[in-house]
């Protein structure tokens, strides 16, 4: 799935995959302009409304979307700020809510072209759960160059759409009916659920199922460090399941 060494680039659903940076860039932008744009417009409009109600300025709300770029952490941030928590407590809570970016960056970066640290920091800063899941899909490009282009195009479209949606939500906060506002918060969970269902391979499936099933009690009892523990448990389960399937195959 990740190796770019094969000479024959496989077709996916009858479409030839891009093999160079420019082709990947175009494919990534196209992919982002579909459903991800719709979901981002929905969920970041909800976030914009939330920041308006908690007393952030419009510029700060947009800046937080572009530079924090991790919605669960952003929501934790604005809710804790509204509750009057101090800066250090907020930083720790946001860090815990957004720690997923650590394993995600580790597993994404080696599949992208170039080892330049600055390029990789930029890609990691642009990465989101959606961009990570899209690049991991079977339909994503396979060569490292095309993957770099794909992730760049995909994320740049996503950040632009999300920044715009935050501003729209901020300015229109008062006019939003309550059920619609709630649905905008739900859309993100529904999208993540379907993206995880769409993953291939036994190891990933075991990791996802373990993550959900074990994640419920773990996060109930350890609300702060729950996601880290879930990652350790589910990642190891997926790794072991993948290892046994490899042995059986050979």
């Amino acid at each position: 799935m990740f190796s770019g060494s094969s000479v024959n680039y496989p077709r996916y659903d009858g479409v030839m995959k891009p093999v160079d940076f420019k082709g990947g860039l175009r494919a990534g932008m196209r992919a982002a302009l579909g459903l991800p744009t719709v979901v981002l417009l929905g969920s970041l409009t909800g976030y914009g409304a939330l920041t308006h109600d908690t007393g952030f300025g419009a510029g700060l709300a947009v800046l937080s979307t572009i530079l924090v770029w991790g919605l669960p952490g952003q929501i934790v941030m604005s809710e804790m700020y509204a509750a009057g928590a101090d800066v250090l407590a907020i930083a720790v809570a946001v860090g815990m809510a957004n720690m997923r970016f650590f394993p995600m960056a580790v597993s994404l970066m080696p599949t992208l072209a170039g080892r330049n640290v600055l390029v990789r920091f930029a890609q990691a800063q642009l990465m989101s759960a959606t961009s990570w899941a899209y690049v991991m899909r079977a339909s994503a490009p396979e060569t490292p160059e095309a993957r770099l282009g794909y992730h760049t195009g995909f994320t740049c479209v996503c950040v632009s759409v999300a920044a715009t949606a935050t501003l729209i939500g901020y300015l229109g906060a008062a006019g939003l009916p309550k059920p619609l506002g709630l649905a905008l918060l739900f859309i993100n969970a529904c999208f993540l659920l379907l993206l995880l269902l769409d993953t291939r391979g036994r190891g990933a499936a075991v990791a996802v199922i373990t993550g959900v099933v074990a994640g419920i009690p773990i996060n109930m009892y350890f609300p702060d460090t729950g996601l880290i523990i879930t990652g350790l448990v589910g990642g190891t389960a997926g790794f072991l399941a993948d290892g046994t399937s490899r042995k059986q195959a050979s």
Binding site: P72, P103, L193, L227, T230, G234, F239
Partner: peptide, 24 residues
């Protein structure tokens, strides 16, 4: 590297459990 890929899936699944079942 393979372990971290699976850990990412698990963390995202844990995040999903939080959003759906234990939301704040």
């Amino acid at each position: 590297f393979r372990w971290f890929s699976f850990a990412s899936f698990a963390v995202l699944a844990g995040l999903l459990a939080r959003l759906l079942i234990l939301p704040s």
